[in-house]
Simulated assay, not measured.
Amino acid sequence: MSDTTTRALALLNLLQTHRHWPGAELATRLGVTERTVRRDVDRLRELGYRVESIPGAAGGYRLEAGSAVPPLLLTDDEAVTMAIGLRVAATQQLVGGPEVTLTALAKLEQVLPSPLRRRVNALAASVQSPRMGDGPVVSPVVLGEIALATRDQERLRLRYVDREGSESTRRVEPHALAPSGRKWFLLCWDLDRDDWRTFRVDRIEAVEHTRVLFDRRPLTPEEIDERVLIAASWSPQKIEADAVMELPFPAMQEIFGPWSDGATPDGETRTRWPFGGSDWREAMYALLWIPEGVEYTTTFPEPERTALREALGRLQRALDAPPSSRP
């Protein structure tokens, strides 16, 4: 294989791994001049690959959907079958974990020609995959589009419906897609609220690409996991209650960090904090995180309130009694 062919394949591989590449960065990665990059791009175009040139200071190259699916050389039927399978796998959280599935889905969807994409959308809508658990239905079309934008660091406009049924348009910088339980969550920077937000993907009605790129904000994997866990905890729970603590709202936010999401001021000196759980034991665990010395009241519901009171009474008596001696 000639150096020219090897370099062209390396260029094609780079174009497939990211939606937009500056010409100077491609030249650096390939160890050639920008003029050589332009010639290699022309060779790819002669082979039928649609490589778009983007002018300007922030310009570069972008691989667009063409008449074939490079470089696997799949038939149309094979490409459609793979795309549908990956969409189903992503919604069911299969195939080696969510990251592997979404990466493969993003690569394939990027190069699907428009007619094949329409076939995939039509057929995927009619595929009734076996449900695993009681998770909500996630649109594979929406999931695929968000996966592309997350990988490419592209700003999106989302049409989102919250749990009360209110619809809004959100301008976001998608940072991570992650499953928790049987739900998918999008962690993103909300441009209108100037803060991190986590949205349930099954509540995203539509995705609009802006082609505006952004630089990722620093966030560790541990912080991503914590924010997704917090978002998952806000899903409807069997036990739902509020705690009104004698702690000003700013102080509560500083102490609780991301776990203060959903809390609201209750006057100048108190904070109302919603919490919940699958049973009274799990809900009680949240109350244990209220700082020592901070008084509070709670709307803990019945009959779980009575069960909690009985358990705490036994615990108090056990702590007041002298320790039993070993025989």
Score class of each variant (00 low, 15 high):
residue 5 T to N: 06
residue 6 T to Q: 05
residue 10 A to L: 03
residue 17 T to H: 14
residue 21 W to R: 07
residue 25 E to T: 14
residue 28 T to W: 03
residue 31 G to S: 02
residue 34 E to C: 15
residue 37 V to P: 11
residue 39 R to I: 02
residue 44 L to Y: 11
residue 50 R to T: 11
residue 51 V to F: 01
residue 56 G to L: 12
residue 57 A to Q: 01
residue 61 Y to D: 13
residue 65 A to H: 03
residue 67 S to I: 05
residue 70 P to M: 04
residue 72 L to G: 04
residue 80 V to M: 06
residue 85 G to V: 01
residue 86 L to P: 00
residue 91 T to S: 07
residue 94 L to E: 01
residue 96 G to S: 00
residue 98 P to D: 05
residue 113 P to F: 01
residue 113 P to N: 10
residue 114 S to G: 09
residue 118 R to C: 06
residue 134 D to I: 02
residue 137 V to N: 04
residue 137 V to H: 10
residue 137 V to Y: 10
residue 139 S to A: 03
residue 147 A to Y: 13
residue 149 A to S: 14
residue 154 E to L: 07
residue 157 R to N: 06
residue 160 Y to K: 14
residue 160 Y to T: 06
residue 160 Y to N: 13
residue 163 R to V: 09
residue 167 E to K: 15
residue 172 V to A: 07
residue 174 P to G: 12
residue 177 L to D: 08
residue 181 G to L: 12
residue 194 D to M: 04
residue 200 R to C: 15
residue 202 D to T: 11
residue 210 T to F: 04
residue 211 R to N: 07
residue 211 R to S: 09
residue 226 E to F: 13
residue 237 Q to W: 00
residue 239 I to E: 04
residue 239 I to Y: 02
residue 253 Q to S: 05
residue 259 W to E: 02
residue 262 G to M: 05
residue 264 T to Q: 14
residue 267 G to T: 12
residue 268 E to K: 15
residue 268 E to R: 15
residue 268 E to N: 07
residue 269 T to Q: 12
residue 276 G to A: 11
residue 276 G to T: 07
residue 285 Y to L: 13
residue 292 E to R: 15
residue 296 Y to E: 08
residue 298 T to H: 02
residue 299 T to V: 06
residue 305 R to S: 09
residue 308 L to G: 06
residue 309 R to E: 11
residue 313 G to N: 15
residue 315 L to H: 14
residue 323 P to L: 12
residue 327 P to R: 11
